[in-house]
């Protein structure tokens, strides 16, 4: 079962570029990344593309396929009709380096700014103990492979470059949530989440959750709970009062 597919691939760099059309063979069971590799092997030897594991685990091969942020290695060709043109572009939210490769350093800068995990003192026997039920919520976010598809699709920065300075993006809002929920961590990140990492910019329209290849419930389990924690701290007069008169311990 081999057929010829029409591919439109964006080629160029920061100074300009365009969608170029190719006809390329597709075999049964292949994914978009296979086709990009075949293109490179047969027609476009200098096509720049970033990939590594081909198993949806390294987060390198993020791109936009027919306008949707996807991992190329997890997008089966069988999801397209044989006559359908498949359009592949680089992530549109980040500066392009060349062809399908973008400069995602915005994400690494934000990652480095998150107040680091700071555990409480160890037990007398030198260990840190916690119950599974207490870390379970944080562990969902540990599945993240840092493909940055959520960052790419988030309209706060996708459509408003100027917001990059003030908004850390969904991936790092769930990092803040992960640490804020962590039973061992002692740093409070609620004020920073709202004032410095731009939690309030998120309008919970859930595109991050829609594109996450790990199926992380970024909005329901991370961002909304974090918003609620910030409300406790900053906007709810009752919980504010409770914490003032010492009726409400940290957890």
């Amino acid at each position: 079962m081999t057929y010829d597919a029409t591919f439109r691939v964006w080629r160029g760099d920061a100074t300009g570029g365009d969608l170029q059309t190719f006809t390329v063979a597709v075999n049964e069971g292949e994914v978009v990344l296979d086709i990009i590799h075949r293109l490179r092997a047969t027609q476009a030897g200098d096509l720049a593309v970033r990939w590594n594991c081909k198993a949806g685990k390294c987060g390198s091969c993020s791109a936009e396929i027919n306008g949707r942020p996807r991992l190329m290695c997890l997008t089966r060709m069988s999801t397209f009709g044989e006559g359908e043109t498949v359009t592949v572009t680089p992530l549109r939210t980040f500066p392009v380096i060349r062809d399908l490769v973008t400069d995602v350093s915005y994400n690494y800068d934000k990652a480095a700014q998150i107040p680091a995990f700071t555990p409480r003192a160890r037990e007398k026997d030198g260990t840190h103990r916690m119950q599974q039920v207490d870390v379970e919520r944080s562990q969902e976010f540990r599945k993240c492979i840092e493909c940055f598809l959520c960052q790419d699709t988030c309209h706060v920065i996708r459509d408003h470059e100027e917001n990059k300075a003030v908004f850390a993006g969904p991936r790092f809002l769930i990092r803040l949530a992960e640490l804020d929920m962590h039973p061992l961590d002692v740093v409070d990140r609620k004020d920073a989440a709202q004032d410095e990492f731009g939690l309030g910019y998120c309008n919970i329209t859930k595109c991050c959750s829609e594109v996450c290849p790990e199926g992380i419930h970024l909005t329901d389990n991370g961002i909304i709970p974090l918003k609620e924690r910030v409300v406790d701290r900053k906007y709810d007069p009752l919980t504010w009062l409770g914490s003032r008169i010492g009726r409400r311990p940290k957890d």
Partner: peptide, 28 residues
Amino acid sequence: AVTATAPRRTGAVAPGHGNGMPAPRRAA
């Protein structure tokens, strides 16, 4: 802390001001 944290701006940050123009250096 287990790892170091990069410096960041202190205090609340002001929103950006968009002009509706395409962002620089992105794929055209």
